[in-house]
């Protein structure tokens, strides 16, 4: 069996679905963040696949930007979650109810 574009897209779609399920079902803020990382990597797999089989090199440059931005976003998100943990000793998304109405 040769690996073709379809396999990359299938892997991307599978990662995307797992990520979305993780985001929807996880109640822990860090769990949600892990789901988001899976979604971002699903897009990366798609981009690299398209770059290899139909597009140009610009998709690979795009992927490098995405990796850098994902790292920056994760750093900021973890810092914010840590700050909430210091205030409340709890990072359950459902129990973050100080602000509502």
């Amino acid at each position: 069996m040769t690996i073709g574009l379809f396999h990359y897209l299938a892997l991307g779609a599978a990662l995307f679905s797992i990520g979305v399920i993780g985001v929807v079902t996880r109640r822990n803020a860090i769990g949600v963040l892990i789901g988001v990382e899976l979604i971002l990597n699903a897009a990366n797999v798609n981009l690299v696949g398209f770059s290899r089989y139909s597009g140009g090199l610009d998709a690979q440059v795009f992927v490098i930007f995405v990796i850098v931005l994902a790292a920056a976003e994760a750093a900021v998100a973890l810092a914010i979650i840590l700050q909430l943990f210091e205030k409340r000793s709890d990072i359950d998304v459902d129990r973050a109810r100080g602000l509502r109405g």
């Binding site: 963040l33 979604i39 699903a42 798609n46 210091e86 205030k87 998304v93 973050a96």
Partner: peptide, 21 residues
Amino acid sequence: GAEAAMKYVLFGAISSGLMLY
């Protein structure tokens, strides 16, 4: 403030992930 930032960052990360896909 911490709770607001957490809601903002999680919603933002999820929607930017969907957008990227």
